[in-house]
Design a protein around this nucleic acid. Structure first.
Lengths: 210, 210
DNA sequence: CATGTTTTGTAACATTTGTTACTGAGTAAC
DNA sequence: GTTACTCAGTAACAAATGTTACAAAACATG
């Protein structure tokens, strides 16, 4: 299991840090659709993603959902880091998009390593940086694009994550992620199909060439 | 001038760091509407805001604008920090919302201080944290609220920043910030006026009680 | 295959937001 | 005061998105 850490993070972290991660980190496997973090939950450990992908969602007080971005291997969740500093409650929900494996690091180690290891510091900064860019991208999408374009991007994202041109979702699931209604998604998907951009099947959307 | 730094950051930073800031930082005053950073510009120094407020904007390739959030005293721009790590080009535009004063710190110092001063490290982390929360808030607004609610929030934000219940903007300016058209803003403002939430004057919007 | 459930398609209509065009009110400069 | 300019108000219409309701298709189960 541990060699996985080396493969993904070996070039980033110095030997001593890798060793600490091995000693302290807890290896964990999660299945597709497993919930990793719920909104409001207290964050006690931060994940280093080894394989798979994690979907990060936002939800408002009325239960409206919005997909933010995916975490992939080599990523960590800056939002989690962030929560360790603040009041500690998660502002987001994290759900395994596919079967995934990760190393959980207790948050207490964070500050310690931040002083001790320059490579860890850089990793954390880079992680924050990437999350900021992702959020900006999300903002661009919802602020500047129409729903049909957002939908297409969403499908392409999903396709990329699962490394397949088939997206296995119901229209309702997509509607939740984009914070709209099923009927609207069905309508837009049908339009995309008529333009020969996708092909529709039950529980399946096939992205045609590209 | 320097005592300003002490007033705003004295409790955060240790003596030695304050001293370095004094030696190395460049004090700068900007006028309302002065542009601090342009999109695509290379970021060479990071600002510590002493007084006033800075408006942070996003813009897409077609020139569509979107207001993100305000920086206030005691804030720094995590986006700037972020840019120092990445390719160095700014992803956002920063414009003085009111007359403001700030200390500019050359980016080279950043990494140095991050190793050297724990308080600086914490400040930087806290800054990232705050920026992430602001961006999440922005996302909530554009994803979950209708334009009339977004408009009202925007007016309240502006009012708070200028510490006055009068917002001095034209409808066109507001439209740019919310990425919509002047006519739409005029319409919604008129509705808010009819509900006795605001009062409209030329170049001026007065927020009534609350 | 009979039944119930989930998923999708579609129509009809409502609401929100965007666009174009025109008007008049307020302001500034001369 | 006359003129020019900026800003705001509004109507009429267009487009995008949301809602409700219903039916058909696909699938799962017994």
């Amino acid at each position: 299991m541990f060699k996985e850490i080396k493969v993904n993070y070996g070039s980033l972290f110095e030997e001593a840090l890798l060793k600490e991660i091995e000693e302290i980190g807890v290896y964990k496997e999660v299945r597709k659709d497993d919930k990793l973090i719920e909104i409001g939950a207290y964050v006690k450990s931060m994940p280093l993603l080894i394989s798979g992908a994690i979907k990060i969602l936002r939800e408002d007080d009325d239960g409206n959902e919005l997909f933010l971005y995916f975490l992939e291997k080599g990523d960590t969740c800056a939002m989690t880091l962030s929560c360790c500093i603040g009041q500690g409650q998660s502002k987001i929900r994290a759900i395994a998009e596919v079967d995934s494996s990760l190393y959980m690091i207790p948050v207490q180690k964070m500050e310690e390593w931040t002083s001790k290891y320059k490579s860890w510091r850089n990793f954390v900064f880079a992680s924050y940086h990437n999350r900021l860019l992702e959020l900006l991208d999300t903002i661009d999408n919802i602020a500047f694009l129409n729903l049909d374009q957002r939908l297409l991007k969403y499908l392409q994202d999903k396709s990329k994550i699962s490394d397949s041109n088939i997206v296995s979702s119901t229209h309702q699931e997509i509607a939740y992620d984009l914070n709209t209604s099923r009927v609207v998604i069905s309508r837009l998907l049908k339009t995309l199909e008529n333009k020969n951009i996708i092909e529709l099947q039950r529980n399946k959307i096939i992205l045609l060439e590209s």
